[in-house]
């Protein structure tokens, strides 16, 4: 039970607390979860490549792995990926790392994989099973995972983008059921997968640590969520992701302060070695 003395000590601490403590003031951050272009049905702050680049630089981001919101609904993913690659290169090639999108329900999606890797030089690809209406149990997903693994290109699976309770009625997309993932990764041990926007519940109910599985922190919630998670999950397989510009970028950064993390843990978290 805190005493008057401990309360006064705490009071002095919070009145002096800066927005970010020194331990959480990481720099040269790699943000693994960024999107360029327009959210489908409303404008977001910083939703032009230049504005987003300025915003990320101001927060100390050195590299941002960028997908495109255009990939959610547009069916010509060849064009979407080409535009994303061009915009990343034109805006800030040192900051933005273009992450193309595949949809295994599209004819000849294998051509998109080749173009992303060989034409655009992309180092990872992103998939949206919720928006593109398939599950991880579908044979098409397994084919895609095997093809990406053969091509030695890692995959980012977007588990969700928006709270189902606030989604547009005409665009309701289910969260991805991740329960099959551990078995798939066991079957295909060379695959490398990073799940984006997984919630704490998804992780606790569906996932277990595996050497080829990562996820990001953007959608994790709860007091001290990172220090709690690190009791069961290796820090090397967590990555700093913000889900910006849909989320306030600072939401991810302040999680580093809310949990008791060492400078070494913060460095590991903010400098992902997934790629």
């Amino acid at each position: 039970m805190p005493t008057r003395r401990t309360f006064l000590t705490q009071a002095a601490a919070f009145t002096a607390a800066p927005l970010l403590s020194p331990a959480a003031s990481a720099s040269g951050i790699t943000d693994v979860n960024i999107h360029l272009h327009r959210w489908p049905h409303h404008r977001l702050p910083h939703d032009t490549p230049t504005a987003l680049a300025d915003h990320l630089h101001a927060h100390g981001v050195a590299q941002a792995w960028a997908g495109s919101y255009d990939a959610l609904l547009q069916q010509d993913l060849t064009a979407v990926n080409a535009r994303l690659a061009a915009d990343c290169a034109k805006t800030d090639p040192n900051l933005f790392l273009a992450i193309g999108t595949l949809n295994p329900n599209h004819p000849r999606w294998q051509d998109d994989l080749k173009r992303c890797q060989q034409t655009h030089g992309m180092k990872a690809l992103r998939i949206y099973p919720g928006f593109h209406r398939y599950t991880l149990a579908d044979p098409a997903f397994r084919q895609l995972l095997e093809a990406a693994t053969s091509a030695r290109i890692p995959l980012q699976i977007v588990a969700q983008l928006e709270d189902e309770r606030t989604q547009h009625p005409a665009l309701q997309t289910p969260s991805v059921d991740l329960k099959l993932l551990p078995a798939l990764l066991k079957d295909i041990p060379e695959a490398r997968i990073m799940v984006l926007n997984a919630s704490s519940t998804m992780i606790h109910t569906a996932l277990q640590p595996a050497p080829n599985l990562w996820f990001d922190i953007a959608k994790l919630e709860g007091c001290g969520v990172l220090e709690t998670l690190l009791q069961t999950w290796p820090i090397e397989q967590l990555a700093f992701g913000s889900n910006a510009p849909f989320f306030y970028w600072l939401a991810a950064k302040l999680k580093l302060q809310e949990s008791a993390l060492t400078p070494a843990q913060i460095h590991t978290l903010t400098h992902s070695v997934f790629l």
Binding site: Y248, L250, A251, L254
Partner: peptide, 18 residues
């Protein structure tokens, strides 16, 4: 709405606002 929510994510709505 802590502790179900992080203080971090909710503070960011204000700290991060323009």
């Amino acid at each position: 709405d802590a502790p179900g929510r992080s203080f971090a994510t909710q503070l960011a709505k204000v700290h991060g606002a323009d």
